[in-house]
């Protein structure tokens, strides 16, 4: 599989890219720090025991004008493209976002508007080739409006809605949209937070995601137990949600 990967530098993206490289998928890395992408590329090759060089290209979710070019680079350096993965995203605590509207707007732009714009470019490129898989990390935070994640959750809710629509509209044409909804996962993003029950490990998530990509599952919770947790949370009446703190 030939994969363009935005966000392999850290966290769940790093873990997923390692699993992909290890099984022989050909990756092209996209990210905002080229030097750092090169180090990630070295790690992926060394772990996979492969001497094939992994191409890297610049792509910053805050610079949408570069999206089309970045994906074109990937398709050219891989001589093909079967899959586009987006794990990149940002998070901050609700208090910090409330205190700084400009930062809140940026977060919304990165996680929603610009991720959608990136996916639009990826969609066109994959459809032009006759189809492929678009795997994007949203979040369980997008399932209900909740006090600790009002703004971050809204950005992910928008993203999930977009991905669902995309799946309905283009699956028949060959575009398989895979929306990943991680629960709490122990990465740098959540490092300062106290892990709740069912907190997951990045590599465990990567296993779930890889299966979802292979099968073309439209929505996958990771770790899997979060499907049940969210089933419960979705069914809570509004007055209960208003009372509780999470």
């Amino acid at each position: 599989m030939k994969v363009a990967f935005l966000g392999a530098s850290k966290g769940m993206g790093r873990a997923l890219a390692r699993r992909m490289a290890a099984r022989g998928d050909e990756l092209c890395l996209l990210g905002r720090d080229l030097e750092d992408q090169r180090r990630t590329a070295l790690d992926l090759s060394a772990r996979a025991g492969s001497s094939r060089e992994i191409p890297v290209h610049h792509c910053d979710l805050e610079q949408p004008e570069g999206f089309a070019q970045a994906l074109k680079h990937c398709e050219e350096s891989l001589a093909g493209l079967d899959c586009v993965v987006v794990t990149a995203g940002v998070y901050d605590a609700q208090e910090n976002l409330e205190a700084d509207t400009d930062w809140a707007r940026r977060l919304m732009t990165i996680n929603f508007s610009n991720t959608v714009a990136f996916c639009e470019e990826a969609r066109k490129r994959l459809l032009a080739r006759g189809g492929g898989t678009l795997c994007v990390f949203s979040s369980v935070a997008g399932e209900r409006g909740r006090k600790p994640v009002v703004i971050y959750g809204a950005s992910k809710a928008g993203l999930s809605a977009y991905l669902e629509g995309l799946d309905h509209k283009f699956r028949a044409a060959g575009l398989r949209t895979v929306c990943i909804k991680p629960g709490f996962v122990k990465t740098g993003m959540t490092a300062g937070l106290k892990p709740p029950p069912f907190a997951g490990e990045p590599d465990q998530v990567a296993g779930v995601v890889l299966r979802a990509i292979d099968k073309g599952t439209p929505v996958a919770y990771a770790p899997g137990i979060w499907a049940l947790v969210m089933l419960a949370i979705r069914s809570l009446p509004r007055f209960v949600m208003r009372k509780i703190g999470f």
Partner: peptide
């Protein structure tokens, strides 16, 4: 512990 990349391995 999050800094766990292998930068080179010479077989």
């Amino acid at each position: 512990i999050l800094a766990d990349r292998i930068l080179a391995f010479d077989e």
